[in-house]
């Protein structure tokens, strides 16, 4: 009995946790899906509104799992989904999987300094080099404040 308990304890301690939930945060409840291309084409129609989008996860915040990039429905397009740290944590294994995300569209007007700070932070997270001289002006960033998500196959 004692040996059995020790074995169970050791297995429980060293077994990897693989069962990440398929649903994250508040999940997904909206019935109508919005194309990412529509949001990118006419952001004014969507800013402040809750939308449901889906797409391929092409990047995940490796440190905190606090953002993902979803590929758009057209080539070369993507949108960033930012979630509150700790509230939703996207696993790195989600890269290459299809996600359906629900959240509020946000538009942020950033100064050049803010863009540099933001890109520097992202570069540090990814462990790649960043040259501030590549940023010549401020920009408007469109993103979705993620409230819930559902990811296939994680």
């Amino acid at each position: 009995m004692r040996t059995f308990l020790v074995v169970i304890l050791l297995v429980a301690m060293f077994s990897p946790v693989t069962a990440f939930a398929k649903d994250f945060g508040k999940g997904v409840s909206l019935s109508e899906e919005t194309a990412i291309s529509s949001i990118l084409d006419t952001p004014a129609d969507y800013v402040g509104k809750k939308v449901k989008v889906s797409g391929l996860i092409i990047d995940v915040c490796s440190k905190r799992g606090c953002w993902i990039y979803l590929a758009g429905d057209r080539d070369f397009e993507k949108i960033r989904i930012k979630v509150t740290d700790g509230e939703i944590v996207f696993p790195m294994e989600a890269r290459g999987k299809v996600a359906t995300v629900e959240g509020v569209v946000e538009s942020m007007v950033l100064t050049r300094e803010e863009v540099i700070k933001r890109r520097k932070h992202h570069a540090e997270e990814k462990g790649v080099a960043f040259d501030p001289a590549t940023v010549t002006s401020g920009e408007t960033v469109l993103r979705i404040r993620g409230l819930g998500a559902s990811i296939d196959g994680v």
């Binding site: 391929l56 092409i58 070369f76 993507k78 790195m92 294994e93 989600a94 890269r95 290459g96």
Partner: peptide, 14 residues
Amino acid sequence: YRPDRNSLQLFVEG
């Protein structure tokens, strides 16, 4: 995924 005209991103087991 195609990030731009000259790039291709492939996903293989995460």
